[in-house]
């Protein structure tokens, strides 16, 4: 099983590194633009947020946004393409358990999230002096976020029947959730109703705890954030496994 798992992960890594111009390079450019515009040009006018200057405030959110987008994009595109060109049959006829298939794809998403997140972190370091309050919180939040969105991407790929279906969720659900999850602002500045609503958005907990790891300040209890993320991962993992085992849109 270990060899099969390693094979899927290596295949996934080779897949996105082979097309690094599409997968690794663009997020770094986009992020640098975000920092230049929102942090560098507009940041000074906005002032401090959650006790730090705006540039330092938005950096964790921007890094996490790239992790979310890339972990999701990796599993959704890779698994959908495997369905599209029928190469998923290579796995289905082999004695690889469904858990191993799922873990392999999720691991691929985590690695891409890490590579791109680290790339953005390094790119940002050229412009801003970065401080990390607690590396373990940063790594733990990264890991949970990457797992969660790799799973979400996988489920999207299972249901997707066309290329449109793999871009609808990121555009119309993921992007608004990311932007409304406190990536560019502290939820403390929102009216109470919107603050309460934000707490139903899982991205809020990720951004908050990731920011805690960088800046040492958060708007919600770290333990609550971890609990929310872990629960969501468990739910999505069970759903993804069930879909795979049932062969939904894969086996008839």
């Amino acid at each position: 099983m270990w060899i099969a798992y390693k094979t899927i992960v290596v295949k996934e890594i080779l897949r996105f590194t082979r097309i690094w111009v599409q997968t690794i390079f663009p997020p770094i450019i986009t992020t640098s633009l975000y920092l230049l515009i929102f942090g560098g040009l507009m940041g000074e006018r906005i002032g401090d947020m959650q006790g730090v200057d705006y540039l330092h405030f938005i950096i964790p959110g921007i890094i996490l946004m790239t992790v979310i987008q890339n972990s999701y994009a990796n599993t959704v595109s890779s698994f959908f393409l495997a369905k599209f060109n029928n190469s998923i049959e290579e796995l289905l006829i082999s004695p690889v358990s469904y858990w191993v298939i799922l873990l392999g794809y999720i691991s691929g998403g985590i690695v891409r999230g890490f590579v791109v997140g680290l790339g953005v972190f390094i790119a940002v370091s050229f412009f801003v002096e970065l401080q990390i309050y607690n590396i373990w919180i940063v790594l733990m939040t990264f890991l949970l976020t990457a797992i969660l969105f790799s799973l979400a991407g996988f489920i999207n790929a299972v249901f997707a029947k066309s290329f449109d279906d793999i871009s609808i969720v990121p555009t119309f659900i993921l992007m608004p959730m990311t932007y409304l999850g406190g990536m560019f602002y502290s939820v403390e500045i929102l009216p109470e109703f919107w603050q309460t609503l934000s707490k139903f958005n899982p991205i809020y907990y990720m951004v908050d705890s990731f920011r805690m790891g960088f800046l040492g300040s958060s708007t919600t209890d770290l333990l609550v954030s971890m609990l929310v993320l872990t629960t969501m991962i468990m739910v999505l993992a069970i759903v993804a496994f069930y879909l795979l085992k049932k062969g939904v849109n894969i086996k008839t």
Binding site: I3, I8, L14, S87, E90, L91
Partner: peptide, 17 residues
């Protein structure tokens, strides 16, 4: 098979499974 994978890799991956 994945048309964007090299020939040898397709075989080696299948063996890995």
């Amino acid at each position: 098979f994945n048309p964007f994978e090299p020939v040898e890799e397709i075989l080696v991956n299948q063996a890995g499974y």
